[in-house]
């Protein structure tokens, strides 16, 4: 951890590289960060709000879904990019030394840019539609922090495991595809029958998305049972760090 601070220069450099590379030579540039979630939102609004008509406790469906999507896609970005970060940077790993944990962490900073743009977009839509944010907005950083921690927990494990077993590379897309339906991104938790709700409690992102909706949109506060998911997440994070630390020195020999 102390090492990461010493090498923070490399952390920022790698993040800036990714951000710049992502939008270099694209005609629309950073606009893509806005277009992508908006088109997704449009499709889901048509399906869930117009065709299926889910109940979102009086919150306009586009706002409801968009909040979920912002948090979920940020989480997925960290898992996806972070999980593949070591394998993708094989070349760098073999040529210079830096704390390897910097690679998955740098993806958080990269994802944060898109996340920030989306949040601003959300706030703009809220203000335009007259749904002004409430004082609970001050809790926003807590849920942002929890999202990062959840993403990193999974990413650290995956990045380390992918080095050893390339199988995990193929597992990531499954995880992401199943995850979105196991998490109340497009639907409210109330859609799940009471007796199956404990499944959601195990999923930290379920509580976190609920939390975002609460602090941004004034949705009902997620019940205390969601702490179970958070505790699980913290355990995954700590064990992930331990595992990563164990294999860190050998990564280059294994890759």
């Amino acid at each position: 951890m102390k090492n990461i601070f010493i090498y923070r220069n490399i952390l920022f450099t790698l993040s800036v590289r990714d951000i710049k590379a992502k939008y270099s030579q694209t005609f629309l540039g950073i606009l893509w960060s806005v277009l992508q979630p908006l088109t997704g939102l449009l499709i889901f609004t048509i399906f869930f709000a117009k065709l299926i008509k889910v109940d979102t406790h009086g919150i306009p469906y586009p706002l409801f879904a968009f909040t979920g999507m912002i948090a979920w896609y940020f989480f997925v970005f960290i898992v996806n990019q972070g999980g593949m970060s070591l394998v993708d940077s094989e070349y760098l790993l073999k040529k210079i030394y830096f704390p390897r944990l910097i690679l998955p962490i740098s993806k958080v900073l990269v994802g944060l840019v898109d996340f920030g743009i989306s949040v601003i977009l959300l706030l703009v839509i809220m203000i335009i539609s007259g749904h002004l944010p409430k004082l609970t907005l001050v809790y926003f950083p807590i849920f942002l922090g929890l999202t990062i921690l959840s993403g990193l927990s999974v990413a650290i494990w995956l990045s380390a495991l992918t080095i050893r077993f390339r199988d995990f590379q193929h597992i990531i897309p499954y995880l992401v595809n199943f995850g979105i339906w196991m998490t109340p991104v497009f639907y409210p938790t109330t859609l799940i029958p009471q007796k199956y709700q404990f499944v959601l409690y195990l999923n930290p992102m379920a509580g976190i998305i609920g939390g975002f909706r609460w602090c941004l949109l004034g949705d009902v506060r997620p019940p205390i049972q969601y702490l179970v998911g958070i505790i699980i997440m913290v355990l995954v994070f700590i064990t992930g760090l331990i595992y990563f630390d164990r294999i860190e020195r050998e990564i280059v020999d294994l890759i």
Binding site: R17, K20, A21, S24, L92, K95, Y97
Partner: peptide, 25 residues
């Protein structure tokens, strides 16, 4: 450690960006 030509160079980035990138790596 300069073990390779263009450590960390990213093909999509400009020469200027790559100087900053590589030098800081």
């Amino acid at each position: 450690s300069i073990l390779d030509i263009g450590t960390g160079f990213h093909p999509d980035l400009s020469g200027r960006d790559n100087i900053y990138l590589s030098a800081s790596l």
